[in-house]
């Protein structure tokens, strides 16, 4: 199949036969996945299920052994500017010498192109994105002075500034307080209502049904995928989490 031919353009994310392995052991096995446009989708699964690896492979950050990925019908290489990526907060050094606005402007480096510095327009767009996450007052702060929740919001602003139709977030709720989590979810729902596709790696089963409308359950293989109502069942949870489920204590949650 040629890269520029459209393949499954009706899906925001289409993954087919994807297998990823580290040192010979499969981390993801034969993943077939479709996420329609305009949904807010959670990817859940136990530790080591390959959630982060799945989005890294989708974004081309991890090389798969087999399979292919399409965003709105295109290979990821042709969609770079149209996917906003929010990596895990702990993946970078927050003592890096830079300001909040500077980090957000990094989301515009691609569209600026080589040899051009961000100017007044980039500055305005960065400030607007910061306002979207309620961080406009922190634009000139050092990033080393931010709390965990503020770091997360800056990372989200960096993805928002691209104005991308697809957003992919890796554990955005990890280590943020309840107020920030609520603010983040409200923002993501607003983006979804604007017609964007929001894909979130999520670790908290108890909030899945209130936050999301689409669900992918993963444990090396795809356990189930579809609307949350249809996928969030005791059988599927047991298949994905096995014995861990009793410890997590979500069985009560599955009652209506």
């Amino acid at each position: 199949m040629r890269d520029d031919a459209l393949h499954e353009p009706g899906q925001a994310l289409h993954v087919e036969d994807l297998t990823v392995s580290y040192d010979g052991a499969p981390v993801l096995w034969d993943i077939d996945l479709d996420i329609p446009p305009g949904v807010m989708c959670a990817i859940v699964g136990p530790n080591g299920a390959g959630k982060s690896t799945l989005i890294k492979a989708a974004l081309g950050l991890v090389r798969p052994v087999a399979g292919h990925v399409r965003f709105l019908g295109h290979a990821v290489g042709r969609m770079r500017g149209r996917i906003g990526y929010v990596p895990q907060r702990h993946s970078v050094d927050w003592d890096f010498p830079t300001t909040v606005r500077d980090v957000v402007e990094m989301g515009l480096y691609r569209s600026l192109g080589w040899f051009r510095r961000p100017g007044r327009d980039a500055r305005a767009r960065a400030l607007a994105a910061l306002a979207d996450v309620g961080m406009q007052d922190y634009a000139d702060r050092q990033i080393s002075q931010l709390s965990g929740g503020q770091q997360q919001r800056v990372f989200i602003a960096r993805a928002l500034v691209q104005d991308a139709p697809i957003l992919i977030l890796d554990e955005p709720m990890a280590g943020v307080d309840a107020a920030t989590e609520a603010a983040i979810i409200a923002l993501l729902k607003r983006l979804r209502d604007d017609g964007r596709t929001v894909i979130v790696v999520h670790h908290d089963l108890t909030t899945v049904r209130s936050y999301f409308d689409w669900l992918v359950m993963l444990n090396v293989r795809i356990i189930a995928q579809g609307p949350v109502r249809a996928v969030y069942t005791p059988e599927n949870l047991r298949a994905a989490y096995g014995r861990q489920l009793a410890m997590i204590g979500v069985f009560d949650e599955t009652a209506p």
């Binding site: 770079r80 500017g81 990596p87 890096f96 830079t98 990094m106 480096y109």
Partner: peptide, 22 residues
């Protein structure tokens, strides 16, 4: 000087730079 912003992004967050297609 020529690759200032690219060097900065790669030094701060290489994964994001890769996702941006740099």
């Amino acid at each position: 000087l020529a690759f200032w912003k690219e060097f900065k992004l790669v030094s701060f967050d290489a994964d994001f730079a890769r996702a941006q297609g740099l």
